[in-house]
Computed example of a mutant assay.
Amino acid sequence: MLNNCLEQAVAERLILVNPARGCKLPKMEKREIKVLPEEKIRPYLMEADKRGLLAPFYLELTTGLRRGELLALLWTDLDVENRTISITKQVTRTKGELVVSQPKTHNSIRSCRSRSRRWT
């Protein structure tokens, strides 16, 4: 992004040369996905059920949705017949307020299928 801004400044003759041209970006560190061990799934879901939160926590485990995506779901996003959920929005915290908005990237808008055979 900085490179594009500096290129625009060169095009507008605000600067002579883009100082970022030719710079190499550092390699991005890949973060390892943390998966809940199989032996902890049952106790996890039992605790969620005790608190009346089984549905969202089960959905989280079976779909891989992010927290903000889960919080933004409406019944209209659910297609029981095709076993899919439409992800078109997310909940974020902005200045202490919860705000429903479109996901940051176009690729985040998608249909998600449950990996569970029991989902109906």
Rank of each mutant, 00 (worst) to 15 (best):
L54S: 08
A55I: 14
T62V: 13
E69D: 09
A48T: 07
D79N: 15
K40Q: 12
K40F: 06
N82S: 11
L6H: 09
C112A: 08
N18A: 05
W119G: 05
I85T: 04
E47W: 06
E32C: 00
C112V: 12
N4Y: 07
P103H: 01
C23E: 01
M1F: 08
I33K: 04
P103L: 00
L61I: 09
E69S: 12
E97I: 11
T62M: 10
K40Y: 06
L73V: 04
P103M: 00
R66V: 04
E32R: 06
D79Y: 06
E38D: 12
S111A: 02
R83K: 14
L70A: 13
R21L: 07
I87S: 06
E47F: 07
C23Q: 07
P43Y: 02
K50V: 01
K27N: 11
R42A: 11
W119Y: 10
S111W: 00
K50G: 11
P26D: 02
K27I: 01
S101I: 02
I41N: 02
K104N: 12
V10P: 05
W119C: 12
W75D: 08
S116W: 04
Q102H: 03
L54R: 14
K50D: 06
C112M: 05
K104E: 09
R42D: 05
N107K: 10
K34A: 03
Q90E: 14
S116Y: 06
E81Q: 12
D79W: 03
L65P: 13
T62F: 06
K89L: 06
T76L: 11
F57L: 15
K95R: 15
L59P: 08
L78F: 13
A11M: 03
V80C: 07
P56G: 13
K95Q: 15
G22R: 03
G22D: 01
